[in-house]
Write a protein that binds this DNA or RNA. Structure first.
Length: 507
RNA sequence: GGUCCCAUCGUCUAGGGGUUAGGACACAUGGUUUUCAUCCAUGAAACAGGGGUUCGAUUCCCCUUGGGACUACCA
């Protein structure tokens, strides 16, 4: 039976995939994999005007980077294709005709502009504009106009098809729809619009295409964003009109702005400087490229772990879970109902945990690509990596950290020099430099012993002495273990650096 | 305006008729380290308000308030 479990992610390629969409995809993926079912990617490109070719690629590439691979998709068709709605136009036509024939839908001829005017007028008067049973006969449509005239009008191909909501004649017509996360929801059918299901360009709207495809593709669970909850009743009515069994529905809580109120928008990322896309996005209309999690150095595994926990948790105190562990632990009934604010700090924390688990080889490749480390043998490279690994939030930070060590200091901490530098201190360092030069094969441990001893003899605080020496070698008074740095750089380099720094200070 | 959804520390959340309301991030303090980071320990920090139901409510119900979504020939 579990073979029959089928879930889909059905994005609209009008813009880049953001983390909200990614989370929807992830949850669908997780449930399908947990029940050993199938995960389908369907491209909902029924809006010809807003279609963006780059967006579809962005969605595909993002999912790929995150390791969420569909079992069926436009690229990998299964038995239920095509998987792009623009290629399914004729299928929808057939089902729209069925609804018209059964009296569940009708042709409507009023121009969009005219209806908009009416809507505005109603709003002005504080009224609610609905196009449904209570006023549909007042508009131009195949219910209000005689048959011959209707035929003529439809021949012009200048019509839309509207779904005819049922009207019981009672003042209220309550039905119950079910959401797996929220439970039973009561809706008054009398308030439902006669929604357009077929546009004048012949393309279906989301509502129709979505329902038809979910049925045809044998989708068992519809997991989507909360913004779809208000149209759930309509979708249920469509299933009823066709006489189809409904899938299970779950509407995910929204991801909200980190500060203030409102749902997270694509602009927030630019405004606050945090990523909202998995991978970079460059729109033709905009010159600048927006960096994604990938470009900012996040691990895809960390991203997945992070977004999975916005709105879900396993019920125990484990937080670091691999994709396989998420599959194992995931369940629909532990999804949260309320919206969650997006907190990038937590994402950084997740990333840090994943960066630590990265093998040294990964860092070695980063270093090899960006800086010249040919003069270092692999043992030394490994030492650098081990030294710096636990200090990193992002794996690419190792470049900055290692540059601080490998490159001669450019700027010296002036504040420290002005405050703490003394003649005695100066002399002790000169003395140390000579000692290293004379014993150029000496081990860092011995250098440490010698230096600490000298500090003691000259009544210089160890802390100050260490900071001073560090300043001579890397220009800063804080950083990783100094004597490991000495070991990595080698005594002759240390000699050079100390001399140079002393010259600068004493100039 | 109408319809629907939601409400526990600053943030993500656990819990659920009787709990010292638990954890994580962030924050603060202390310890470790020569320093920073790490690591360890500790601390501060929450049941939106008002009514019910009940012996007892943060938990169940109602109202208020607040937040959100939808209200397109967009999805």
């Amino acid at each position: 039976m579990s073979d029959n479990i089928r879930l889909r992610f059905a994005p609209s390629p009008t813009g880049p995939l953001h983390i909200g969409g990614l989370r929807t995809a992830l949850y669908n993926y997780l449930i399908s994999k947990k029940s050993k079912g199938k995960f389908i990617l369907r491209i909902e490109d029924t809006d010809l005007k807003r279609y963006n070719k780059k967006a579809e690629k962005h969605i595909l590439d993002s999912l790929k980077w995150c390791g969420i691979s569909p079992d069926e998709s436009p690229e990998k068709p299964g038995n239920y294709g095509p998987y792009r709605q623009s290629e399914r136009k004729n299928i929808y036509k057939k089902f729209i005709a069925i609804l018209i024939k059964s009296g569940n839908a009708y042709f409507a001829f009023d121009k969009k502009e005219k209806l908009e005017e009416k809507r505005k007028k109603c709003e002005k008067n504080g009224e609610t504009f609905i196009y449904n049973w209570h006023n549909r006969l007042k508009f131009n449509n195949s219910l209000s106009i005689r048959n011959e005239k209707t035929k003529k009008l439809t021949q012009n191909n200048n019509y839309v098809v509207r779904f005819k909501t049922v009207h019981s004649g009672k003042s209220k017509n309550m039905i119950t729809v079910n959401d797996e996360i929220r439970g039973k929801i009561q809706v008054d059918l009398n308030n439902l619009d006669d929604k357009i299901i077929c546009k004048s360009d012949g393309m279906p709207t989301y509502h129709l295409a979505n329902v038809v495809d979910d049925y045809l593709m044998k989708i068992t669970h519809v997991i989507r964003g909360e913004e779809w909850l208000p149209s759930l009743a309509l979708h249920c009515q469509l299933y009823n009109a066709f006489g189809w069994e409904k899938p299970k529905f779950a509407h995910l809580p929204l991801i909200l702005k980190p500060t203030g109120t409102g749902k997270l928008s694509k602009r927030d990322g630019e405004k606050y400087g945090f990523p909202v896309y998995p991978i970079k996005w460059k729109d033709e209309s905009k010159k600048s490229e927006i960096k994604g999690f990938k470009e900012l150095g996040y691990e895809s595994k960390a991203l997945i772990n992070f977004i999975c926990f916005i709105g879900w948790n396993p019920g125990n105190e484990n937080e670091i879970l691999s994709l396989n562990e998420l599959i194992e632990n995931f369940s629909i009934n532990r999804i949260i109902k309320s919206g969650a604010k997006y907190d990038i700090e937590k994402a950084k924390w997740f990333n840090q945990s994943y960066v630590r688990k990265l093998p040294n080889k990964t860092f070695k490749i980063i270093l090899e690509n960006k800086i010249n480390i040919s003069q270092l043998n692999s043992e030394r490279i490994n030492k650098i990596i081990e030294l710096l690994k636990e200090r990193l939030t992002f794996k690419n930070d190792i470049l900055i950290e290692s540059n601080n060590i490998l490159e001669e200091p450019k700027n010296l901490d002036k504040n420290f020099i002005n405050k703490e530098w003394s003649k005695d201190l100066n002399n002790v360092i000169i003395e140390l430099n000579r000692y290293i030069k004379e014993n150029h094969l000496i081990k860092p441990e011995k250098i440490k012993d010698y230096y600490l001893n000298q500090l003691k003899n000259n009544n210089i605080k160890i802390g100050i002495g260490m900071q001073a020496l560090r300043l001579c070698i890397i220009g800063k008074i804080s950083g990783p273990d100094l004597f490991i740095i000495i070991e990595i750089l080698g005594n002759s380099k240390i000699n050079k650096r100390i001399s140079k720094t002393l010259n600068k200070i004493n100039d």
